[in-house]
Amino acid sequence: MSLVEVNDLAKTFDVSAPWLNRMVERKPRQFVHAVDGVSFSIDRGRTLALVGESGCGKSTVARLLVGLYGPTRGSVRFDGMDTGQVFASPQARTLRQRMQMIFQDPYASLNPRWKVVDIVGEPLREHALVTDKAALRHQVAELLKSVGLAAADTEKFPHQFSGGQRQRISIARALATQPEFLVCDEPTSALDVSVQAQVLNIMKDLQRERGLTYLFISHNLAVVRHVADQVGVMYLGRLVELADKATLFGSPRHPYTRMLLDAIPDIHMTGRARTPVQGEVPNPLNPPTGCAFHPRCPHANARCSAERPALNHFRGIRVACHAVEEGRI
């Protein structure tokens, strides 16, 4: 049973110059299609990871799911409810209790003037889950213990912690309302590799204990391999491949997925032929025609530059590629 269902989700941002500049320079308005028709579902208790290079729309998807942005097109359904309608209604508070977000930068997402008891306790106060101070302190201490910190840390300020400890505080804050769904926007990318492993292990343990459902955003495929059940690969606002983890890492189909996997250092020295990621991500203000990946693709032909591929089912996975469809690769 799917807890989260995303259908044809799109978000367009107006990035035009001010009106007077446009009039003087005779320039049209400019729009960026940050997310352009993304569809996926996440089963209860499972983890879907979205991967791709910077600027492909992963973080925008995360913000659309938790209601920080409103979609330009499409819908997000959570436990059967249309979140767009619920966020605009009095039931929004209850829905926000059930879904929370962990942000990328633990140095920017915690208020430096607040003690940990206030930071982690804020969701409890906002949602009126705890009324008196003693109960609040006890609840915050328990949350800190669940992420491997001490009860005594409640009286400290964020600057007294390392990056990994701060991210644990962020996780404790996200867990305060006992959510079912966590959106994790690159939660370990600002941390050292050794600390990344600790934070990821805590998140996996919490998922097992509490039956949490995760959307995990990352550009690091090694991290994704550790946490995900399913993987979606994004390129310039669209999903190009969606498969379960074993299939995606074992036999990737889309040329872009293959390039991303080839860019991972080969520690086993298998001697397999590798093609590192070639070229740059195109300017999103002026994306290529047809398949957005065709200028960088070794298998592109005339159809690829003219016709945009749809995300179709192919041998148990979903892939958007004319070359795969035609059996050229």
Rank of each mutant, 00 (worst) to 15 (best):
5 E>Y: 04
17 A>N: 00
20 L>K: 00
20 L>I: 02
24 V>Y: 01
25 E>H: 03
26 R>L: 04
29 R>H: 00
33 H>S: 06
41 S>I: 00
45 G>R: 12
46 R>Y: 05
48 L>A: 07
49 A>F: 03
52 G>Y: 12
53 E>C: 03
53 E>G: 10
54 S>T: 03
62 A>E: 10
64 L>A: 04
65 L>M: 05
78 F>M: 12
79 D>N: 15
80 G>M: 07
82 D>R: 09
84 G>Q: 09
89 S>T: 01
99 M>T: 02
101 M>W: 06
103 F>N: 10
106 P>V: 01
108 A>Q: 13
110 L>I: 02
111 N>F: 08
114 W>Q: 13
117 V>H: 03
117 V>A: 02
119 I>F: 00
127 H>F: 09
133 K>E: 13
134 A>K: 12
134 A>G: 06
137 R>V: 04
143 L>C: 13
144 L>K: 08
149 L>H: 13
151 A>E: 15
160 Q>T: 08
161 F>G: 08
165 Q>E: 15
167 Q>S: 15
179 P>T: 11
179 P>N: 12
185 D>M: 12
196 Q>S: 05
205 D>E: 14
205 D>S: 15
206 L>I: 11
207 Q>M: 12
215 L>C: 07
216 F>L: 05
218 S>R: 04
218 S>F: 02
218 S>Q: 05
225 R>A: 15
227 V>T: 10
228 A>I: 10
228 A>F: 12
233 V>C: 08
234 M>Q: 08
236 L>R: 10
236 L>M: 14
236 L>F: 11
238 R>F: 08
243 A>I: 04
247 T>P: 01
249 F>M: 01
250 G>Q: 06
250 G>F: 05
250 G>K: 05
256 Y>A: 05
256 Y>F: 10
260 L>C: 01
263 A>P: 01
264 I>V: 13
265 P>L: 09
269 M>G: 02
286 N>C: 00
288 P>M: 06
289 T>P: 00
301 N>R: 13
307 E>D: 13
308 R>K: 15
310 A>G: 07
311 L>E: 11
315 R>Y: 14
318 R>V: 04
319 V>H: 09
319 V>P: 12
320 A>W: 09
328 R>D: 14
